[in-house]
Write a protein that binds this DNA or RNA. Structure first.
Lengths: 224, 224
DNA sequence: GGTCTCCTAACAAACGGTCGTTTGGCCCAG
DNA sequence: CTGGGCCAAACGACCGTTTGTTAGGAGACC
């Protein structure tokens, strides 16, 4: 029995998955055709397996049973697909993190909620997460800046939780919030390289164990 | 003043960089031509910036002031270049880790030496490290298996240090060695995405801070 | 010293193929 | 009868690699 589940209360579901005003109207943007969604899914899978530059329109067409030229009935360019996959991944991580960060309670609880949520999100959309982390840099400057902004927001949320914890005395005052934030992001972002859905541990369990290791390091006082 | 340097003794140079018997004879393999070394360096840089599939022989040729066909006087194929870069990166990490792991002393000291060495190695050869971590999966099966073996060796060294620490009572018995090893690898392997040589912190300082955070988590007893 | 031969490294050109994208026409569901 | 979805074909560009050739230097021999 690992000590995991005892060190801190579990986040037990961070929030009920956003009711958020804008549900019925669906104001902006054309309703995405189901065929286009299929295409984006296939792109997530293929880009994550073969890389963006290693995936051709031929590959994508074959995945849907179409000729490569036919794909242009649904997209403007190959890069549109990359952006859709990457942006979708960014939004999932970001909205999860916002829920975790704003959930109130001790910083340790919020940080755990964020890390567990991160691992869960990566696990549930492993392809998109892989593309989000690996291939976003191949976007051309304008869309890449858009993604960079979301990454910065995400990192800011993590760092804020840690600073809060230091300010409130929960975390050791010697902790460098920037470095601790990077440690959390490292643990979360490296997951996609080794997590496999058929592995021994569930994503939630992994998130809990990582939280334990990291939170112990943050709360421990230095030696006398 | 961060508490960093006080928690544990510094590794203060792990070992004197291997004199190792085989220095004069240089027994096997043809002496690599200087031009070929230039080419591998350029490949490391370009592959790290644009990805393997995003780099053409044209790009590589331009970097050396040659026609793309002329490169085949020095290499057998584009993949040879990828392998040289990746394998060189793997060897650097592995030999550093072997020195750290076999340096004797407490597990905490060895783990710190390994992590500091890891960050230093990644920083000194940032391009090769990036390619090693990002592009190695595009190798074809046989060379990829060779790299995989070295990665497994590396992870084994990390995990062994942690198990030693648990067995000796240095680390908390509740620690999951596999997960803690992955946390160390995550911290070290994510570095290349954010470390920049002109940044505020030196690689060694980063390694020390990360070691502090992780070691505190490993040595701490759970709450009563 | 001359010159002949070999070797290396490079070039220009071409190979067959694939790239991402565009176009024009056909089919069928609304 | 209109229009979205698809195909077949073509576009020009570029891909990784191979080929035939050449300039220049290093020795070997006369």
């Amino acid at each position: 029995m690992p000590r995991t589940v005892e060190t801190l209360p579990a986040p037990d579901r961070v929030a009920p998955e956003e009711p958020e005003g804008r549900s019925a109207p669906r104001a902006a943007g054309p309703v995405p055709s189901p065929r286009r969604a299929e295409l984006v899914n296939a792109a997530a899978r293929l880009f994550s397996e073969r890389g963006y530059h290693g995936t051709s329109m031929q590959h994508l067409g074959r995945a849907l049973g179409l000729q490569r030229g036919s794909l242009y009935a649904h997209i403007g360019s190959k890069e549109d697909l990359l952006f859709d996959v990457v942006d979708g991944g960014a939004d999932r991580f970001l909205s999860m993190a916002r829920r975790a960060a704003s959930s109130g309670g001790p910083a340790a609880v919020r940080l755990r909620a964020l890390l567990v949520g991160h691992v869960n999100t990566a696990a549930q959309h492993l392809d998109a997460a892989t593309v989000f982390l690996n291939e976003w840099r191949y976007l051309s400057p304008t869309p890449r800046a858009e993604i960079q902004a979301k990454r910065d927001l995400y990192e800011g949320l993590v760092r804020r939780i840690i600073s809060d914890g230091i300010a409130s005395g929960e975390f050791s005052p010697g902790v460098d919030a920037a470095m601790a934030g990077r440690l959390v992001l490292s643990a979360g972002n490296w997951i996609y390289t080794w997590y496999r859905p058929d592995g021994a541990m569930s994503a939630a369990a992994i998130g809990m164990e990582l939280s334990d290791l990291i939170l112990d390091g943050l709360t421990k006082e230095g030696p006398p």
